[in-house]
Structure formats: structure tokens, C-alpha cells
Amino acid sequence: MNLRSRWLAVPGFICIAALATMLSAYSGASSSEGNSPVQPVKFRHTIHVDTLKMNCLYCHFAANKSFDPGLPAMSTCMGCHTVVQGTTPDNKAEIQKLAEFWNKKEPVPWIRIHKLPEYVHFPHMRHINAGVTCQTCHGQIQTMKQVYQASSLNMGWCVNCHIGQSNPPFRARYDCSACHY
């Protein structure tokens, strides 16, 4: 390494790294929009919500009273599925998987899809109680055979709604401390 390249290498690297960071952030490429992992048990929102017309709050019981929407306890699942065994072979197999977890006294390790960074607060109850539907953020979840992240969950996407650009329009605070506190 001659003198010149030595003096260029380190600042050059820093420049490239900084550029990469900014491009990545600006392009929104860090969003996991569309992420749709295969879950350990193929839970079907289509059957539960679209066909059986179950209310979202039956399982996500805390969505209107807590920051956290609430993940149903295994006992909630088994409340019905000790009786309901499914009709098609596929469904029977999945319910069987659920029962196996329950018999082992293990929770199903669901894979998380929607995740905001730690420095953002998203109080579910305020959105639900303001009349924002689940679908506004989570997409047409009742028709998803396998749940995917329908929205980018990036800040620009949040702010669009907070400044009243959604349909129907909502008005909410959008100063920094509304979410970053």
C-alpha cells in the first residue's frame, strides 16, 4: 500500500458506508413490506374471520384496551378446538399440530410479522378507539391465506395518515413526541 492509497482507504470506506446507509434509508428498502413467513401452524384468518365471521377482538382481545393487541392464549384456541377438528384433511392436520403443542404444554412459536422499531410507540387501543379499522394497517387480513405485511410501516406511511391524507381522513398529532417518546 503506497502512501496515497493509505490516505484514501479509510475516508473512502467511511464515505461508501455513509452513502449506502443513506440510500438504503431513502429508498425505503429497509421496510419488510410483503414479508410473509410460513407459520408453525397454518392458522387461517380466512376461515375464522371471513367464513365464520368471528370478531377480531375475540382473539386479539386487548386491541381496544392496550398498546398490545393481545395474542390469544393457547387455552383460547383449545376452547373451540378440543371440539372443532376441521373438515378437510389439510385443516385436520393443522389442528392436530395445534393439539400436539397443547398436549406438550408448549406455546406455538408464532413468527412475528409486524414489528415497529423499539423507538416508536404504536398504541393499538387509541387507533381502534378512533375508528381506524384493523385493515387500514394490516390490509385485507380476512382474505389472506397466509398473512403478510401489507403496509411498509415506515414513518412516511404513518405520517400520511396522521396528517389526514388517508381515506377516510383522520386527524392526529404528528409532532415527534406523538410516537417517539
Binding site: T21, S30, F61, A62, K65, F67, A73, K105, P109
Partner: peptide, 26 residues
């Protein structure tokens, strides 16, 4: 820097087996 911008690591959501009395998360 490059890897840090890729998708979040796989995170698990672990439900209660049986929820404690009157528990609303958060």
C-alpha cells in the same frame, strides 16, 4: 452497515398457554 439495513431478524411471538387472571398485555 449493509446487513443492518436488511430485514429484521426473525422474532417469535410466544402466547400464554393459559393467560393469568385478568391479564391484558401492557
Amino acid at each position: 452497515t449493509m446487513l443492518g439495513c436488511t430485514q429484521e431478524k426473525v422474532e417469535k411471538l410466544i402466547p400464554y398457554l393459559i393467560s393469568p387472571d385478568q391479564t391484558v398485555p401492557g
